[in-house]
Design a protein around this nucleic acid. Structure first.
Ligand code: FES
Ligand code: FES
Lengths: 141, 141
DNA sequence: AATAAATACTACAAAAAGGTAGTAATATAT
DNA sequence: ATATATTACTACCTTTTTGTAGTATTTATT
């Protein structure tokens, strides 16, 4: 579940973009807002484009926008796309056979906890984040 | 939550040891049973000893035994010891301020899911694993 | 047409994680 | 005493992840 920094960055970026209303986000702008290393961020952004989350336009005034509706992007999807499906379903005791073969001693307990986690992740779309952010703003008034 | 292989290995080892009744486990034996790379396993075992989970005796017929009661070792403790407390409580959106500073949009939702996870991990001790394993055996008869 | 502000591509560098090798130390068995 | 089976220590190698650099390409502005 979020095994590396890259995935974390991706969620940071997408979450941030979702909760704002700019119509275009340049790498430079995101870098300044989010403090993710410039060059790494750029690469990640084109990666996210290749994976179909974002759409890029190059040239002056270019940048990134979402390629899909915010409702269509949930957090589990992002994680899975970036680090592979397995990370969300590996055996807690480190055996390779989770699900497929004989389940380990912890399997049932672990599966239950994990699927709650997964539920949260897959039920939270970027649209939800935007909504929550809006509510946050209202509360702060 | 289990960010690296080493932690996974540790859980594999401790879980395995807990569910058996040998009075001593040599690195070589564990290697053969669990297929964890020999040398790496050795190092991890002495690490686990240094962290107070195991007790080692060297020399012929030496090996590793638990240094504490099985009831005293829960899975969250193992994870925390090996990869630091933070991994169980970092911000889902990748902001550094989880808990301490201003919580992010996802904070409440995420905290809830995560604490369920944590509950499972910290409520499962090695003694429980042993018990479950025993039950497994009975069921299989 | 020239400039400037952006992304895209490719290759490399640095750091962290995972894994290996050699040798020393320890203790039991013979 | 010696041989054997074990852990301990230290240094190194490999792979993966993270981060950087250089150059090319695209496009709006002037
Ligand atoms: S087999 Fe271990 S958690 Fe599924
Ligand atoms: S601040 Fe983001 S989950 Fe706590």
């Amino acid at each position: 579940m979020i095994r590396n920094k890259t995935t974390e960055y991706a969620l940071t970026i997408l979450g941030f973009m979702a909760s704002r209303n700019e119509d275009m986000y340049s790498a430079e702008y995101l870098h300044k807002q989010l403090n993710i290393p410039r060059r790494y961020l750029r690469r990640l952004l084109t990666d996210l484009s290749k994976h179909g989350f974002l759409k890029s336009t190059s040239g002056r005034n270019g940048g990134f926008v979402f390629a899909k509706d915010l409702e269509e992007i949930n957090l589990a999807l992002v994680i899975n796309t970036l680090e592979g499906y397995e990370t969300l379903c590996t055996c807690i005791l480190g055996f390779s056979c989770c699900i497929v073969d004989k389940p380990c001693i912890m399997h049932d307990t672990w599966m239950e906890a994990r699927s709650k986690m997964f539920e949260v992740l897959s039920n939270t779309t970027l649209a939800d984040l935007k909504e929550k952010y809006q509510m946050d703003l209202i509360k702060k008034l």
